[in-house]
Design a protein around this nucleic acid. Structure first.
Ligand SMILES: [Zn+2]
Ligand SMILES: [Zn+2]
Ligand SMILES: [Zn+2]
Ligand SMILES: [Zn+2]
Lengths: 153, 153
DNA sequence: ATTGAACCTATAGTGGCTTTAGGTCCTATG
DNA sequence: CATAGGACCTAAAGCCACTATAGGTTCAAT
Protein backbone atom coordinates (compact mmCIF):
# COMPACT_ATOMS: atom_id res chain seq x y z
CA UNK A 1 0.00 0.00 0.00
CA UNK A 2 2.30 2.67 1.26
CA UNK A 3 5.77 3.74 0.27
CA UNK A 4 6.27 0.93 -2.23
CA UNK A 5 8.66 2.92 -4.33
CA UNK A 6 10.56 4.77 -1.63
CA UNK A 7 14.10 3.58 -1.07
CA UNK A 8 14.69 1.20 1.78
CA UNK A 9 17.69 0.81 4.05
CA UNK A 10 19.04 -1.53 6.68
CA UNK A 11 18.97 -1.37 10.43
CA UNK A 12 22.50 0.07 10.64
CA UNK A 13 21.57 3.04 8.49
CA UNK A 14 18.33 3.55 10.41
CA UNK A 15 20.13 3.50 13.74
CA UNK A 16 22.83 5.85 12.55
CA UNK A 17 20.30 8.34 11.16
CA UNK A 18 18.29 8.25 14.37
CA UNK A 19 21.41 8.46 16.52
CA UNK A 20 20.93 5.26 18.43
CA UNK A 21 22.32 1.75 18.49
CA UNK A 22 21.28 -1.13 16.32
CA UNK A 23 20.31 -3.27 19.31
CA UNK A 24 18.09 -0.46 20.54
CA UNK A 25 16.09 -0.58 17.31
CA UNK A 26 15.58 -4.31 17.68
CA UNK A 27 14.63 -3.74 21.31
CA UNK A 28 12.01 -1.15 20.35
CA UNK A 29 10.60 -3.58 17.83
CA UNK A 30 10.43 -6.30 20.44
CA UNK A 31 8.58 -4.14 22.96
CA UNK A 32 6.26 -2.83 20.26
CA UNK A 33 7.34 0.79 19.98
CA UNK A 34 8.33 0.09 16.38
CA UNK A 35 6.23 -2.21 14.17
CA UNK A 36 7.68 -5.56 13.11
CA UNK A 37 9.98 -4.68 10.23
CA UNK A 38 9.55 -6.12 6.79
CA UNK A 39 12.41 -8.41 5.79
CA UNK A 40 14.40 -8.95 2.61
CA UNK A 41 15.14 -12.35 1.08
CA UNK A 42 17.93 -12.93 3.58
CA UNK A 43 15.73 -12.17 6.61
CA UNK A 44 17.29 -8.77 7.22
CA UNK A 45 15.14 -5.83 8.25
CA UNK A 46 14.36 -3.17 5.61
CA UNK A 47 13.09 0.25 6.59
CA UNK A 48 11.44 3.27 5.00
CA UNK A 49 11.59 6.91 6.03
CA UNK A 50 8.35 6.53 7.99
CA UNK A 51 10.10 4.28 10.48
CA UNK A 52 13.01 6.70 10.72
CA UNK A 53 10.55 9.46 11.62
CA UNK A 54 8.92 7.24 14.23
CA UNK A 55 12.26 6.22 15.72
CA UNK A 56 13.43 9.85 15.78
CA UNK A 57 10.28 10.78 17.69
CA UNK A 58 10.93 7.96 20.16
CA UNK A 59 14.55 8.94 20.72
CA UNK A 60 13.66 12.59 21.10
CA UNK A 61 10.98 11.84 23.65
CA UNK A 62 13.36 9.53 25.51
CA UNK A 63 15.96 12.29 25.46
CA UNK A 64 13.34 14.44 27.13
CA UNK A 65 13.24 11.85 29.86
CA UNK A 66 9.79 10.46 29.08
CA UNK A 67 9.46 6.84 30.11
CA UNK A 68 8.97 4.20 27.48
CA UNK A 69 5.36 3.83 28.56
CA UNK A 70 4.84 7.58 28.21
CA UNK A 71 6.46 7.42 24.78
CA UNK A 72 4.10 4.61 23.85
CA UNK A 73 1.14 6.79 24.75
CA UNK A 74 2.56 9.83 23.00
CA UNK A 75 3.16 7.78 19.86
CA UNK A 76 -0.38 6.51 20.00
CA UNK A 77 -1.62 10.08 20.12
CA UNK A 78 0.72 11.25 17.37
CA UNK A 79 -0.89 8.52 15.25
CA UNK A 80 -4.28 10.20 15.70
CA UNK A 81 -3.82 13.83 14.62
CA UNK A 82 -7.53 14.61 14.78
CA UNK A 83 -7.93 13.74 18.44
CA UNK A 84 -7.71 16.36 21.19
CA UNK A 85 -4.27 16.71 22.75
CA UNK A 86 -5.36 16.79 26.40
CA UNK A 87 -3.67 13.59 27.35
CA UNK A 88 -0.38 14.46 25.64
CA UNK A 89 -0.39 17.70 27.54
CA UNK A 90 -1.15 15.95 30.81
CA UNK A 91 1.77 13.59 30.28
CA UNK A 92 4.15 16.45 29.52
CA UNK A 93 2.93 18.53 32.44
CA UNK A 94 3.32 15.65 34.80
CA UNK A 95 6.80 14.94 33.53
CA UNK A 96 7.69 18.59 34.00
CA UNK A 97 6.55 18.39 37.59
CA UNK A 98 8.72 15.36 38.18
CA UNK A 99 11.71 17.09 36.63
CA UNK A 100 11.12 20.12 38.81
CA UNK A 101 10.92 17.96 41.92
CA UNK A 102 14.13 16.19 40.96
CA UNK A 103 15.81 19.53 40.39
CA UNK A 104 14.88 20.70 43.82
CA UNK A 105 16.16 17.59 45.55
CA UNK A 106 19.28 17.54 43.45
CA UNK A 107 19.95 21.19 44.30
CA UNK A 108 19.67 20.47 48.01
CA UNK A 109 21.98 17.52 47.51
CA UNK A 110 24.52 19.72 45.77
CA UNK A 111 24.39 22.17 48.66
CA UNK A 112 25.07 19.42 51.18
CA UNK A 113 27.87 17.98 49.10
CA UNK A 114 29.44 21.39 48.62
CA UNK A 115 29.33 22.07 52.34
CA UNK A 116 30.78 18.69 53.10
CA UNK A 117 33.61 19.00 50.60
CA UNK A 118 34.40 22.59 51.59
CA UNK A 119 34.76 21.65 55.25
CA UNK A 120 37.25 18.87 54.72
CA UNK A 121 40.62 20.05 55.92
CA UNK A 122 42.51 17.16 54.34
CA UNK A 123 43.75 15.43 57.47
CA UNK A 124 43.12 12.00 58.93
CA UNK A 125 39.94 10.05 58.27
CA UNK A 126 38.75 10.46 61.85
CA UNK A 127 38.89 14.24 61.45
CA UNK A 128 37.37 14.19 57.97
CA UNK A 129 34.19 16.14 57.60
CA UNK A 130 32.98 13.89 54.80
CA UNK A 131 33.11 10.72 56.84
CA UNK A 132 31.67 12.59 59.80
CA UNK A 133 28.66 13.90 57.92
CA UNK A 134 28.00 10.53 56.32
CA UNK A 135 28.04 8.97 59.76
CA UNK A 136 25.41 11.31 61.14
CA UNK A 137 22.46 12.81 59.32
CA UNK A 138 22.08 15.36 62.14
CA UNK A 139 25.15 17.06 60.67
CA UNK A 140 23.11 17.83 57.57
CA UNK A 141 21.50 21.21 56.97
CA UNK A 142 18.49 20.20 54.92
CA UNK A 143 16.99 17.68 57.23
CA UNK A 144 14.76 16.09 54.65
CA UNK A 145 17.04 16.84 51.73
CA UNK A 146 18.04 13.41 50.60
CA UNK A 147 15.11 11.12 50.18
CA UNK A 148 16.81 8.03 48.91
CA UNK A 149 17.48 7.58 45.25
CA UNK A 150 14.55 9.80 44.40
CA UNK A 151 16.97 12.64 44.97
CA UNK A 152 19.12 11.41 42.17
CA UNK A 153 16.86 10.31 39.36
CA UNK B 1 35.40 -10.64 71.62
CA UNK B 2 33.32 -7.58 71.02
CA UNK B 3 29.91 -6.56 72.19
CA UNK B 4 29.14 -9.87 73.85
CA UNK B 5 26.83 -8.33 76.40
CA UNK B 6 25.12 -5.70 74.29
CA UNK B 7 21.54 -6.46 73.38
CA UNK B 8 20.90 -7.99 69.99
CA UNK B 9 17.92 -7.58 67.72
CA UNK B 10 16.49 -9.07 64.56
CA UNK B 11 16.66 -7.94 60.97
CA UNK B 12 13.24 -6.28 61.14
CA UNK B 13 14.28 -4.05 63.99
CA UNK B 14 17.57 -3.25 62.30
CA UNK B 15 15.86 -2.31 59.06
CA UNK B 16 13.28 -0.21 60.84
CA UNK B 17 15.90 1.70 62.82
CA UNK B 18 17.98 2.34 59.72
CA UNK B 19 14.94 3.29 57.69
CA UNK B 20 15.26 0.67 54.99
CA UNK B 21 13.68 -2.60 54.02
CA UNK B 22 14.51 -6.00 55.38
CA UNK B 23 15.44 -7.35 51.95
CA UNK B 24 17.82 -4.47 51.48
CA UNK B 25 19.75 -5.54 54.58
CA UNK B 26 20.04 -9.08 53.25
CA UNK B 27 21.10 -7.65 49.88
CA UNK B 28 23.85 -5.57 51.50
CA UNK B 29 25.07 -8.63 53.32
CA UNK B 30 25.14 -10.58 50.09
CA UNK B 31 27.16 -7.97 48.23
CA UNK B 32 29.49 -7.58 51.21
CA UNK B 33 28.61 -4.08 52.42
CA UNK B 34 27.52 -5.63 55.69
CA UNK B 35 29.41 -8.56 57.23
CA UNK B 36 27.76 -11.97 57.38
CA UNK B 37 25.44 -11.71 60.36
CA UNK B 38 25.72 -14.05 63.33
CA UNK B 39 22.71 -16.35 63.66
CA UNK B 40 20.63 -17.57 66.56
CA UNK B 41 19.68 -21.20 67.13
CA UNK B 42 16.91 -20.95 64.53
CA UNK B 43 19.23 -19.54 61.84
CA UNK B 44 17.86 -16.02 62.14
CA UNK B 45 20.19 -13.04 61.96
CA UNK B 46 21.04 -11.22 65.20
CA UNK B 47 22.52 -7.74 65.17
CA UNK B 48 24.32 -5.34 67.50
CA UNK B 49 24.42 -1.55 67.44
CA UNK B 50 27.67 -1.61 65.49
CA UNK B 51 25.85 -3.02 62.48
CA UNK B 52 23.10 -0.45 62.87
CA UNK B 53 25.74 2.29 62.72
CA UNK B 54 27.29 0.74 59.64
CA UNK B 55 23.92 0.36 57.93
CA UNK B 56 23.00 3.94 58.80
CA UNK B 57 26.23 5.13 57.22
CA UNK B 58 25.48 3.10 54.10
CA UNK B 59 21.94 4.42 53.79
CA UNK B 60 23.05 7.99 54.37
CA UNK B 61 25.76 7.72 51.73
CA UNK B 62 23.29 6.14 49.33
CA UNK B 63 20.85 8.97 50.06
CA UNK B 64 23.64 11.30 49.04
CA UNK B 65 23.65 9.51 45.72
CA UNK B 66 26.98 7.73 46.13
CA UNK B 67 27.09 4.49 44.19
CA UNK B 68 27.36 1.23 46.07
CA UNK B 69 30.98 0.92 44.95
CA UNK B 70 31.73 4.41 46.25
CA UNK B 71 30.03 3.49 49.52
CA UNK B 72 32.18 0.39 49.70
CA UNK B 73 35.29 2.53 49.43
CA UNK B 74 34.02 5.10 51.90
CA UNK B 75 33.23 2.34 54.39
CA UNK B 76 36.69 0.92 53.94
CA UNK B 77 38.13 4.30 54.78
CA UNK B 78 35.82 4.87 57.73
CA UNK B 79 37.20 1.58 59.06
CA UNK B 80 40.70 3.10 59.10
CA UNK B 81 40.45 6.34 61.08
CA UNK B 82 44.21 6.89 61.15
CA UNK B 83 44.63 6.98 57.39
CA UNK B 84 44.64 10.23 55.41
CA UNK B 85 41.28 11.21 53.98
CA UNK B 86 42.46 12.16 50.48
CA UNK B 87 40.58 9.44 48.71
CA UNK B 88 37.33 10.03 50.57
CA UNK B 89 37.57 13.66 49.58
CA UNK B 90 38.29 12.78 45.98
CA UNK B 91 35.22 10.54 45.85
CA UNK B 92 33.01 13.26 47.32
CA UNK B 93 34.43 15.95 45.05
CA UNK B 94 33.90 13.80 42.01
CA UNK B 95 30.37 13.01 43.03
CA UNK B 96 29.70 16.70 43.52
CA UNK B 97 30.89 17.35 39.98
CA UNK B 98 28.56 14.72 38.65
CA UNK B 99 25.64 16.17 40.58
CA UNK B 100 26.43 19.61 39.24
CA UNK B 101 26.56 18.29 35.69
CA UNK B 102 23.22 16.54 36.17
CA UNK B 103 21.74 19.70 37.58
CA UNK B 104 22.76 21.66 34.54
CA UNK B 105 21.31 19.15 32.10
CA UNK B 106 18.16 18.75 34.14
CA UNK B 107 17.73 22.53 34.25
CA UNK B 108 17.96 22.76 30.47
CA UNK B 109 15.47 19.94 30.25
CA UNK B 110 13.07 21.77 32.53
CA UNK B 111 13.34 24.87 30.35
CA UNK B 112 12.48 22.91 27.22
CA UNK B 113 9.59 21.17 28.92
CA UNK B 114 8.26 24.41 30.29
CA UNK B 115 8.40 26.04 26.86
CA UNK B 116 6.72 23.05 25.29
CA UNK B 117 3.94 22.88 27.85
CA UNK B 118 3.37 26.64 27.84
CA UNK B 119 2.92 26.72 24.07
CA UNK B 120 0.26 24.05 23.92
CA UNK B 121 -3.06 25.71 23.15
CA UNK B 122 -5.11 22.64 23.98
CA UNK B 123 -6.50 21.87 20.53
CA UNK B 124 -6.11 18.89 18.20
CA UNK B 125 -3.05 16.65 18.28
CA UNK B 126 -1.85 17.90 14.90
CA UNK B 127 -1.74 21.44 16.26
CA UNK B 128 -0.21 20.41 19.58
CA UNK B 129 3.09 21.98 20.38
CA UNK B 130 4.16 19.02 22.46
CA UNK B 131 3.80 16.50 19.67
CA UNK B 132 5.36 18.98 17.27
CA UNK B 133 8.47 19.57 19.36
CA UNK B 134 8.90 15.86 20.01
CA UNK B 135 8.74 15.26 16.27
CA UNK B 136 11.51 17.71 15.51
CA UNK B 137 14.56 18.51 17.58
CA UNK B 138 15.11 21.67 15.51
CA UNK B 139 12.16 23.12 17.44
CA UNK B 140 14.26 22.94 20.58
CA UNK B 141 16.12 25.91 21.97
CA UNK B 142 19.05 24.23 23.65
CA UNK B 143 20.36 22.28 20.71
CA UNK B 144 22.47 19.95 22.78
CA UNK B 145 20.27 20.08 25.84
CA UNK B 146 19.06 16.55 26.07
CA UNK B 147 21.82 14.03 25.83
CA UNK B 148 19.88 10.86 26.26
CA UNK B 149 19.29 9.46 29.69
CA UNK B 150 22.40 11.23 30.99
CA UNK B 151 20.14 14.25 31.27
CA UNK B 152 17.99 12.43 33.74
CA UNK B 153 20.29 10.46 35.97
C1' DA C 1 35.53 -17.53 -4.68
C1' DT C 2 36.74 -15.22 -0.70
C1' DT C 3 36.89 -11.97 2.74
C1' DG C 4 35.09 -9.09 6.22
C1' DA C 5 31.50 -6.05 7.61
C1' DA C 6 26.85 -6.05 8.68
C1' DC C 7 23.22 -8.61 9.91
C1' DC C 8 20.47 -12.42 12.60
C1' DT C 9 18.64 -14.71 17.24
C1' DA C 10 18.79 -15.75 21.94
C1' DT C 11 20.54 -14.96 26.27
C1' DA C 12 22.83 -12.64 30.00
C1' DG C 13 24.40 -8.52 32.27
C1' DT C 14 23.91 -3.64 34.20
C1' DG C 15 22.48 -1.09 39.12
C1' DG C 16 20.17 -1.32 43.19
C1' DC C 17 17.18 -3.01 44.82
C1' DT C 18 11.97 -5.25 45.12
C1' DT C 19 8.90 -9.04 44.63
C1' DT C 20 7.51 -13.68 44.72
C1' DA C 21 7.26 -18.48 46.11
C1' DG C 22 7.58 -21.78 49.31
C1' DG C 23 8.98 -22.79 53.25
C1' DT C 24 10.74 -22.45 58.82
C1' DC C 25 10.78 -20.19 63.35
C1' DC C 26 9.17 -17.39 67.19
C1' DT C 27 5.80 -15.69 70.36
C1' DA C 28 1.45 -14.93 72.35
C1' DT C 29 -2.86 -16.45 73.48
C1' DG C 30 -6.39 -20.33 74.72
C1' DC D 1 0.72 -27.51 75.54
C1' DA D 2 -1.30 -26.61 71.02
C1' DT D 3 -2.02 -23.46 67.54
C1' DA D 4 -2.32 -19.19 64.92
C1' DG D 5 -0.11 -15.68 62.66
C1' DG D 6 3.63 -12.77 62.19
C1' DA D 7 8.55 -12.53 61.41
C1' DC D 8 12.04 -14.82 59.48
C1' DC D 9 14.68 -17.96 55.90
C1' DT D 10 16.58 -18.99 50.85
C1' DA D 11 16.64 -18.83 45.99
C1' DA D 12 15.13 -16.94 42.02
C1' DA D 13 12.77 -13.72 39.14
C1' DG D 14 11.40 -8.99 38.06
C1' DC D 15 12.11 -3.97 37.42
C1' DC D 16 13.90 -0.22 33.74
C1' DA D 17 15.90 0.67 29.42
C1' DC D 18 18.89 -0.74 27.38
C1' DT D 19 23.92 -2.93 26.37
C1' DA D 20 26.87 -6.73 25.62
C1' DT D 21 28.07 -11.34 24.33
C1' DA D 22 28.10 -15.68 21.68
C1' DG D 23 27.58 -18.04 17.73
C1' DG D 24 25.81 -18.18 13.47
C1' DT D 25 24.08 -16.14 8.47
C1' DT D 26 24.00 -12.80 4.69
C1' DC D 27 25.69 -9.12 1.93
C1' DA D 28 28.98 -6.40 -0.90
C1' DA D 29 33.33 -5.71 -2.68
C1' DT D 30 37.43 -7.61 -4.48
ZN1 LIG E 1 38.57 14.83 54.49
ZN1 LIG F 1 21.83 13.79 55.86
ZN1 LIG G 1 -1.33 20.17 23.17
ZN1 LIG H 1 15.28 18.47 21.19
Amino acid sequence: MQQQNTPTFGIGTLAQRAGCQVQTVRYYEKIGLLPDATRNAGNQRRYHDATLRRLTFIRHARDFGFSVEAVRELLGMADHPDMPCDHADAIARRHLEEVEARLERLGALRDELQRMVAQCAGGRVDECRIVEVLSDHDQCLHTAAHGGQRAIR
